[in-house]
Nucleic acid binder design. Structure first.
Length: 112
DNA sequence: AGCCTGACCTAGG
DNA sequence: TCCTAGGCCAGGC
């Protein structure tokens, strides 16, 4: 409810725009929001995403190398993987296969 | 009220 | 090319 919530909300809304079967990164979101060095906050926002009334597909956000660094925050270490696989994404060793092609960059996709 | 940590990333040595 | 440090700022203790 504070002003900084605005940043969090932007993160949530942007995250909701990620198409199923695609993934993006914390850094990409931070950069798109104009705070390229606030990627950590994006992760923190995801931590609070479960408290949001509207669903936030936080499982579609991974780190820069395509790794599922936040999988343990889904209430189970397999939840994130299962969500991704249910969308057709292949995950091996906590890493998104073909991440380069599945990467959804808001800078490119939204700033046409 | 202050210190520590954390789902990250980039730059500099 | 590997390693270190800095920046972001909300929450927990």
């Amino acid at each position: 409810m504070s002003k900084s919530n605005n940043f969090f909300e932007k993160v949530y809304e942007l995250t909701r725009l990620i198409p199923p079967g695609r993934v993006t990164t914390y850094g990409a979101i931070a950069r798109y929001l104009g705070s390229p060095q606030s990627s950590r906050m994006v992760g923190w926002a995801m931590n609070s995403s479960f408290t949001q009334v509207v669903f936030v597909p936080a499982h579609r956000v991974v780190n820069r190398m395509g790794m599922l660094t936040g999988k343990h925050h889904f209430g189970g270490s397999k939840i994130m993987v299962e969500l991704l696989e249910s969308e057709g994404i292949v995950v091996i060793n906590d890493e998104v296969v073909d991440f380069t092609n599945l990467f959804w960059d808001p800078m490119k996709e939204l700033a046409l």
